[in-house]
Computed example of a mutant assay.
Amino acid sequence: MKKILIAVCGSLILSSCTWVKVTSNGESVRLVQSARTVESCKKLGQVTAKVESKIVFNRDTEKVADELADLARNEAALMGGDTIAPVSEINDGRRSFSVYQCFPARTQ
């Protein structure tokens, strides 16, 4: 019984952790929910992010959504994008996002 309790507690702790971190470049990418927001933007492509949605128990839906968005922001930054918008629902820990460039590219 003690082993089961330890396993359950450990699972709950792990399921509440955030494993994905936004990179410094990813921090400059914004997430929008409305297609109207990106009407005047240049579409650069699409990314699909995946995280574990279940570790013994189903993970918190909001945490999974946040991690998927963080991964997509990181990938969008690598593509030269500054904005992402979800194009699918979360399914089995996966979600697709369109990547846009809405602001003039910065010169360095």
Rank of each mutant, 00 (worst) to 15 (best):
residue 66 D to L: 12
residue 76 A to H: 07
residue 44 L to P: 14
residue 72 A to L: 10
residue 73 R to W: 03
residue 25 N to Q: 14
residue 27 E to M: 14
residue 79 M to C: 03
residue 59 R to T: 07
residue 51 V to G: 07
residue 83 T to N: 00
residue 80 G to N: 03
residue 9 C to I: 15
residue 23 T to D: 03
residue 27 E to W: 02
residue 32 V to D: 03
residue 5 L to R: 07
residue 6 I to P: 00
residue 44 L to W: 01
residue 47 V to C: 05
residue 59 R to G: 08
residue 79 M to Y: 01
residue 76 A to N: 06
residue 21 K to F: 00
residue 51 V to I: 11
residue 18 T to R: 09
residue 80 G to F: 01
residue 74 N to K: 03
residue 20 V to M: 06
residue 53 S to A: 15
residue 75 E to V: 00
residue 46 Q to I: 08
residue 32 V to P: 12
residue 67 E to L: 12
residue 88 S to T: 10
residue 43 K to A: 09
residue 5 L to Y: 11
residue 60 D to M: 04
residue 29 V to Q: 08
residue 11 S to T: 14
residue 23 T to M: 02
residue 64 V to W: 11
residue 73 R to C: 09
residue 82 D to T: 06
residue 34 S to H: 06
residue 58 N to Y: 13
residue 62 E to V: 14
residue 71 L to G: 07
residue 73 R to K: 15
residue 48 T to W: 05
residue 39 E to C: 00
residue 9 C to V: 15
residue 50 K to N: 05
residue 21 K to W: 01
residue 73 R to F: 05
residue 25 N to F: 05
residue 4 I to T: 09
residue 32 V to I: 12
residue 66 D to E: 13
residue 32 V to N: 04
residue 74 N to R: 05
residue 56 V to W: 10
residue 19 W to M: 13
residue 71 L to P: 01
residue 60 D to I: 09
residue 56 V to R: 01
residue 82 D to R: 09
residue 20 V to H: 02
residue 81 G to C: 04
residue 63 K to A: 11
residue 61 T to Y: 04
residue 45 G to K: 06
residue 73 R to E: 06
residue 37 T to D: 15
residue 61 T to F: 05
residue 25 N to Y: 04
residue 23 T to R: 03
residue 43 K to T: 10
residue 73 R to S: 09
residue 19 W to D: 10
residue 28 S to E: 13
residue 42 K to P: 00
residue 20 V to W: 08
residue 76 A to C: 04
residue 46 Q to N: 14
residue 6 I to C: 03
residue 66 D to I: 10
residue 55 I to K: 10
residue 62 E to G: 08
residue 13 I to Y: 12
residue 62 E to K: 15
residue 54 K to V: 13
residue 5 L to A: 13
residue 27 E to I: 05
residue 40 S to L: 11
residue 44 L to K: 03
residue 6 I to E: 10
residue 33 Q to G: 05
residue 52 E to P: 03
residue 15 S to L: 08
residue 52 E to N: 14
residue 19 W to T: 11
residue 84 I to C: 03
residue 68 L to M: 02
residue 5 L to I: 14
residue 68 L to G: 01
residue 49 A to Y: 04
residue 33 Q to L: 11
residue 46 Q to G: 01
residue 25 N to L: 10
residue 64 V to E: 06
residue 16 S to I: 08
residue 59 R to S: 04
residue 53 S to W: 07
residue 50 K to Q: 15
residue 61 T to D: 14
residue 7 A to H: 05
residue 42 K to G: 02
residue 88 S to R: 00
residue 60 D to G: 07
residue 38 V to S: 02
residue 16 S to N: 02
residue 76 A to W: 09
residue 80 G to W: 07
residue 13 I to D: 01
residue 88 S to V: 00
residue 48 T to A: 03
residue 65 A to W: 13
residue 25 N to P: 06
residue 69 A to E: 14
residue 71 L to R: 13
residue 78 L to I: 11
residue 68 L to C: 00
residue 47 V to E: 04
residue 40 S to C: 01
residue 67 E to F: 08
residue 18 T to L: 07
residue 30 R to I: 15
residue 11 S to V: 09
residue 72 A to S: 10
residue 82 D to I: 00
residue 53 S to G: 14
residue 40 S to G: 13
residue 55 I to E: 08
residue 33 Q to Y: 08
residue 21 K to R: 13
residue 77 A to E: 06
